[in-house]
């Protein structure tokens, strides 16, 4: 049987997805990217092959995406993560009109049309505010684990507003808020609000039509998701592993290419 693979080499994690010839997900794997993208891609592929219990030669076509897509020597094609996230999200949730992807280094909002096609998109600028990196820096300052932030913020009764947009300024603002004995959960909630506000401009620029899917590592943070849903006035689609949506889109492209070629 033929299989198709998508590999998304991101700044923090590298994700791989294998599809069957019927475009069913056979397996996925997530590894840390580390210092070498090519090694990470190899590792993710090896992992997903083992998971699917197949061998490399059974893979007919591989599409690479993500920042490190150029460092995947064994890929047949390279496509940007924008196209891949759009397609992946559309595949999972066919009513998706908008994808909000908040990753470790960047965030983007994509307008998705018929068949998972990109109609419009926007990305954050150089600044780290509005990305996973912002939360990472703050988690560090607050001495809480990054993956606990979501839970903590949901417990907060109130919210401490964070006025600075710049990551560096916000960092010193957080330090003084801590010194003023504001509860950590309330500060975290304020930080989540700050990210959501930052991403909101991009959402407005692209517009919301139909269902909204959230992808990327930050979509695992329930606190951010809850605030985003509040702002949107609707619930969002989430995959259990929101990081793999890009790799899924890449795998779908690999599969599609074989369909049209065949």
């Amino acid at each position: 049987m033929d299989y198709f693979a998508g590999i998304d080499v991101g700044a923090l994690s590298t994700d791989a997805v294998i599809l069957t010839a019927g475009s069913e997900v056979a397996a996925y794997s997530i590894v840390e990217t580390g210092a070498n993208s090519t090694d990470a891609a190899e590792e993710a592929l090896a992992g997903v092959l083992a998971e699917a219990e197949i061998v490399r030669s059974q893979i007919k076509r591989i599409v690479a995406t993500g920042y490190g897509r150029v460092s995947v020597p064994f890929a047949d094609k390279r496509v940007t993560e924008i196209s891949c996230h759009a397609l992946g999200a559309y595949h999972l949730f066919p009513d998706t009109g908008t994808v909000i992807d908040i990753g470790g280094q960047d965030s983007k909002v994509i307008q998705v049309g018929e068949g998972g096609k990109v109609l419009n998109f926007t990305m954050n600028d150089k600044c780290a505010a509005g990305t996973g990196r912002f939360l990472e820096v703050m988690a560090n300052k607050l001495q809480v684990a990054l993956d606990e932030m979501g839970e903590l913020s949901l417990r907060a009764g109130r919210e401490v507003p964070i006025s600075s947009v710049c990551t560096v300024f916000a960092e010193s603002e957080v330090v003084s808020l801590v010194a003023q004995n504001h509860p950590t959960e309330e500060i975290i909630r304020g930080l989540h609000r700050s990210i959501v506000n930052r991403v909101w401009n991009m959402v407005k620029a692209v517009g919301v039509n139909g269902g909204v899917a959230m992808t990327g590592g930050v979509a695992k943070n329930r606190g951010v998701v809850a605030l985003m849903e509040e702002k949107l006035g609707q619930s969002v689609h989430l995959h259990e592993e929101p990081q793999v949506v890009g790799a899924l889109g890449a795998a779908l492209l690999a599969w599609r290419a074989s369909q049209s070629a065949g």
């Binding site: 920042y67 940007t80 993560e81 924008i82 096609k117 990109v118 998109f121 990305m123």
Partner: peptide, 9 residues
């Protein structure tokens, strides 16, 4: 990536 995605689009 932005430029590339724009052209894909």
């Amino acid at each position: 990536t932005r430029v590339e995605a724009f052209l894909e689009m």
